[in-house]
Design a protein around this nucleic acid. Structure first.
Lengths: 155, 155
DNA sequence: AGCGGATAATCAGTATACTGATCAATATCG
DNA sequence: CGATATTGATCAGTATACTGATTATCCGCT
């Protein structure tokens, strides 16, 4: 058996661990208080006003079960509004509030800084290559997790 | 703001998500029932008989707080024995049981298959490069998470 | 010897993830 | 049209992760 430090599974977990820590540090230093997951959800709702939770989950690859809690917390912070859809009474329409938009715009520099910092051990060329390889591996494995990425319906 | 699909933080989360799903599927198909985290802990204890929990946590980069539960579950499954250290009554000495060793040996092929499958979208060369880049990025960011990787004391 | 700081383990609380179940509402098809 | 299947959302239960606190113990230094 190879050492754990060579196993992709361990490296995946460890990289994610560092990525989250870096994100939280940068964002907190900038005076904000959102998790990476909450940020991605907020940004996706901002780009897709009135989106329902299942479609949102697909856009950012969250489990349908996980997204309920994430939306709860964003709503509790008054960063989004959640209301029953008129077209489908099972669904909730999600929209970013003015406060949510302010937060989103304000924390963007910190989020971008975090993205750079989590790769700061790599050259620019290496960073680009890592992103490319991760995208390729993820695309090939998309359907293997319970929460695959889904395109928004174009219809 | 760049699309989420280009952000290293999102890719980290997504790759980890897929890696865990692939691991659990392969392991379950082989008739075993351990999580990636439990497997890594069991393997590390097997390679370091009598290790204490903090040192173990450092070897596999787990939080000191998380490892308590992981060890609990391994002990409950009778895969490891946990007993008070004679040299330091604060510490617990961990050892793999015979059953634990059987499980560990038996599931190794499934674990290795999982490592390959989570990279199956990449060529061998790309897979090697991804591992190298992840290792490099992780080494540079090691101290940024609460649970950095620590070498075993050589003393 | 004894005090103060460090350390091993655990705990309570919060936030992802996932499994599988449930409920209400909608879509589909004979 | 009406039985059936599907879908959106939520929930209970389990397993990582992390924060920060606590307890018991050990170690270094005077």
């Amino acid at each position: 058996m190879k050492a754990i430090h060579v196993m992709p599974g361990h490296l995946a977990r460890r990289f994610q661990q560092i990525a989250v820590a870096v994100f939280l540090t940068e964002v907190e230093n900038a005076g904000y208080d959102l998790t990476p997951v909450q940020y991605a959800a907020l940004a996706a709702i901002d780009g897709n006003p009135g989106i329902d939770q299942i479609t949102l989950a697909g856009l950012i690859a969250y489990d349908r079960s996980t997204i309920t809690g994430v939306i709860d917390r964003l709503a509790q912070k008054r960063l989004i509004a959640r209301r029953e859809s008129s077209r489908d009474r099972r669904a909730r329409e999600l929209n970013v509030t003015d406060a949510g938009r302010r937060i989103l715009r304000g924390m963007t520099p910190a989020v971008e800084a975090a993205q750079r910092r989590m790769l700061h051990g790599l050259t620019d060329k290496e960073a680009g290559e890592l992103v490319r390889l991760l995208q390729k591996a993820i695309a090939a494995g998309n359907e293997l997790s319970r929460a695959p990425l889904r395109e928004a319906a174009t219809g």
